[in-house]
Simulated assay, not measured.
Amino acid sequence: MNYPNLPKDCTSMLCRYLTKELFEELKDKTTANGFKLEQAINSGIENIDSGIGVYAGDEESYTLFAPLFDPIIEEYHGFTPTDKHQSNLNPDDLNAPNPDPDGKFILSTRIRVGRNVANMPLGSAVSTEQRDHIESTIIEGLNSLDGELEGNYYPLLGMSREVQENLIKEHFLFKEGDRFLASAGLNRDWPEGRGIYHNIDKTFLVWVNEEDQLRIISMQKGGDIKEVFARLVSAIKIIETKVPFSYSEHLGYLTSCPTNLGTAMRASVHIALPNLSKDMDAFKTITDKHHLQIRGIHGEHSQSEGGVYDISNRRRLGITEVRAVQDMVDGVVDLIEAEKAL
């Protein structure tokens, strides 16, 4: 492979950090799983509008291609190559009385984490056999869930139209088609080896072999954020007894995309702020203070509907899970106060 012809107006982190010299230094290196620089950067080359443009293929990618990954991680997370990540999944350490007990502002709460299986390549480098093995290992872990977490696993392969339509209607089902993931090699063999699990009450959900090998999600209507976090932690601990997760002392929980490292957590609420959203400067002053991200209700790059926004933590690496959720809680309290004042 030759140095890619990157356009002058490309603003992705890949375009900023992949110099010709760095490309020459890294282009012939290969991880033990056979993952090369060419695969790590393919998504950013094929999708020039990427924000980041690189994906890891395994744990070794983060060390072998460190001259490319480290500056991206440092810019995105403010986290240096000598820093160490700390984890804290204790719900008792979270100070989160319901910020909206009357249900006037918060429509729903959702907290999710990404996880990958220890001693296995990540999705970009995994073989068909490995992906199938990962799926069966995860199903074994999910089968050990009981009580409110007990539910059913639905493989995507051979899924009936009726089940599909129900899951899409519930906003549960993930789909093929994301061009960034496709270029990273994350959509290979679709839909084999992939599926979705949810409990009976539909307050707990696991995606298997989408961008990461597990996306573990806890959610419910309203603003009881602590209850949602506690359910998530309970499930993580049970699944981990059967499925060891890929974790590094430096980078925390390892994920395909360097933006999701560390806690690999996104804690969010859908919240109605019809008055505050008329003054986006005031809105952003509050979210910036608490390290929060504003999205439309259908996720990244989507618009708000009826003054309802998706508000989530921006920081993931170098802070604990409790801190990430606390950022969101404290910001939501301030947003509701500002909305009430208007």
Rank of each mutant, 00 (worst) to 15 (best):
L6I: 12
T11W: 12
S12C: 04
L14C: 05
E21I: 08
L22N: 04
L26R: 00
K29A: 07
K29Y: 07
E38I: 07
I41V: 14
N42C: 03
N42H: 03
N42L: 02
S43R: 00
S50G: 01
G51C: 13
V54T: 08
V54K: 02
L64K: 06
F69W: 12
P71C: 08
I72C: 08
I73S: 09
Y76L: 14
H77W: 04
N88K: 06
N90A: 09
D92Q: 10
I106L: 01
T109V: 09
R110G: 06
V113G: 01
V113T: 11
G114C: 04
G114V: 05
G114N: 02
V117S: 08
A118R: 11
P121H: 03
L122T: 10
G123S: 14
A125R: 06
T128P: 15
E129A: 14
H133I: 13
H133N: 15
N143E: 11
P155G: 04
E162R: 06
V163S: 08
Q164M: 12
K169N: 11
E170I: 11
L173M: 05
A184M: 06
G185C: 08
D189K: 07
E192G: 13
G195W: 08
Y197S: 07
K202H: 13
F204W: 00
L205I: 07
V208A: 02
E211N: 02
I217R: 01
G223H: 01
K226R: 12
V228A: 07
I239V: 12
V243D: 04
L251P: 01
L251W: 11
N260L: 04
L261A: 09
T263M: 02
A264I: 09
H270I: 13
K278G: 12
K278W: 10
M280I: 13
M280F: 10
A282Q: 10
F283K: 00
K284P: 05
T285M: 13
D288E: 06
H290T: 09
H290F: 09
Q293R: 13
H298P: 12
Q303I: 15
G306D: 10
G307S: 09
V322G: 00
Q326N: 05
D327F: 04
M328N: 00
L342G: 15
